[in-house]
Amino acid sequence: MLPAVHLRSAVALAGRFPALSGVDLTVAAGEVVVVLGPNGAGKTSLLRTCAGLLTVTSGQAEVLGEDLRQDPTNVRLRVGLLGHAAPLYDELTAAENVRFAVRAARLPVTRVDAALERLGMVGRLRRTPVGRLSAGQRRRVALAALVARAPDLWLLDEPHAGLDAATRRLLADLVEEAARSGAAVLFSSHEPDLAVPLADRSVTMSGGRVAGECRGGRRPALSAVPPSSRAADVA
């Protein structure tokens, strides 16, 4: 099976500035990898590169079997990125935001309710414009959109930030479910105590490169489910 992420000496630019300077990283389908490192190490750039949002100028960069140096459009359809800023429209309700994401991806809107329920955005919360929600609730709406889209590669940039303890547990469950269903999960974190137990591996970045790698705390046996059952499982 092709790895979900395969980077070899990958150099990527953010505008005119180098964001990654020769990254080597492979993430298998069904694997959870956490990226650690200080501010400016290149964690966010790595996730944005894998989403096809940064230009790879040299090296090898394949995500979900697609060469990022060619056309990243197909990759973008199959990845889900939750960045620092949630991709939400303040004036739209939680349900409308998730429905927009689902319809944009040409997926059945029947997924919307299930995803919102999974994240606890029910009743009044689903009808509230997201501009009036708290930071943690907005994060849950963005996660609901991700759950509804069921991407093949989850890219989560510091997903624990701004979440209460219950939502952090829910996030851990979602990561585990996504990986069990065959999706790869790559996420960054400043909180190793929270993040490493969720992951099969942790990689440490420094200066736009992968500087080290350790085993994580996740039990590998849980990831042995074929990708074909993933969409039905998550939906």
Binding site: G52, R76, H84, A85
Partner: peptide, 12 residues
């Protein structure tokens, strides 16, 4: 916003 701009590019 950075989120919505990226979201639109990733939306399909």
């Amino acid at each position: 916003g950075e989120g919505t701009r990226d979201g639109l590019r990733l939306s399909g």
